[in-house]
Every structure is written in structure tokens, then in C-alpha cells.
Amino acid sequence: MEITVNGKKEDVQQCSILEFIRQKGLKPEVVVVEYNLNIIKRENWAETRIAENDNLEILSFVGGG
């Protein structure tokens, strides 16, 4: 199925947000996930299933002034 991740289309298997983050090789504790314009708290990542045409923004805190 196709979803949008950080503005780019991607073809992914059925999975939860947590599984997706792990597949990307990211440590869950360093990222912030916006899912269809809503923030999903880390404790809810495992139960949130990604569906066709979903929009994921995967963000992190970086240095800035």
C-alpha cells in the first residue's frame, strides 16, 4: 500500500507505527510522529496501524536558535 512519509510517497507493508519506525532503523525515543496531522504519543504507536494513503511526518528535535 502507498503512504506518504515526510512528503514522499512510499510503498509499505501493513504495520503499526512502532514497527514502521523500527523498520526505518530509528530509535523510537528520538522521534516525534505526526500521523494524518495528529500527534500520536509514543505509548500509542504499537496499536496504531498504518493504512493506505496515510500521511506520516517523522520529526526530531535538532539544534536551532
Binding site: 515526510n6 517523522i58 535538532v62 536551532g64
Partner: peptide, 16 residues
């Protein structure tokens, strides 16, 4: 101050 950005999947990410 800190900033928020899209993750770069090709680089190691630290939590500021």
C-alpha cells in the same frame, strides 16, 4: 531554543 525538523533517514539521529 531548539528546532523541530523532518528526520533525515540517511543520517544518524540524536535527541537534542
Amino acid at each position: 531554543t531548539v528546532a523541530l525538523r523532518r528526520i533525515d533517514f540517511t543520517a544518524a539521529t540524536e535527541n537534542m
